[in-house]
Amino acid sequence: MNVIDAKSPRPVMGLYDQPLWESVNARGMKLQRCAGCGNWLYPPGPSCPSCLSCELVWTPLSGRGRIVSWVVFHRHYLPAYPPPYNAVAVRLEEGPTMISNLEGAMPGEDSIGRAVRLVYATMPDGMILPRWALA
């Protein structure tokens, strides 16, 4: 299959995921934040893992984070992702870790600890994906 035609892998859409992807499509990514203890949730869920409160408020992210790990795939698993391509684990300034991709450069030996900023990539099939670029 041509990459242009390849459908991007669909997100897991549990009962609590919809607002996340709506905020990504609006290019202003939000996550749930606990009104009780201030903890941020990723992935979205029914209640706060830190204090078990159900009072969660969808709140915009700062868009700042740091790389905590990275990989480069050399095997073709998904039609939309011909190798080589990377994945990075980013620690958000707000606390949670997000698995995503680094745009604009491949990660390398000096990547861990580097500051990154949130960007919105448009996939060939039009899907908007939250990714990261070196800050």
């Binding site: 669909r10 795939f73 095997r75 939309a80 994945a87 698995i99």
Partner: peptide, 16 residues
């Protein structure tokens, strides 16, 4: 959960 970013294999978890 991370499949939109091309991240699905068990190997990828251990590579990270």
């Amino acid at each position: 959960y991370h499949s939109p970013w091309g991240f699905t294999s068990q190997g990828a978890l251990y590579a990270l």
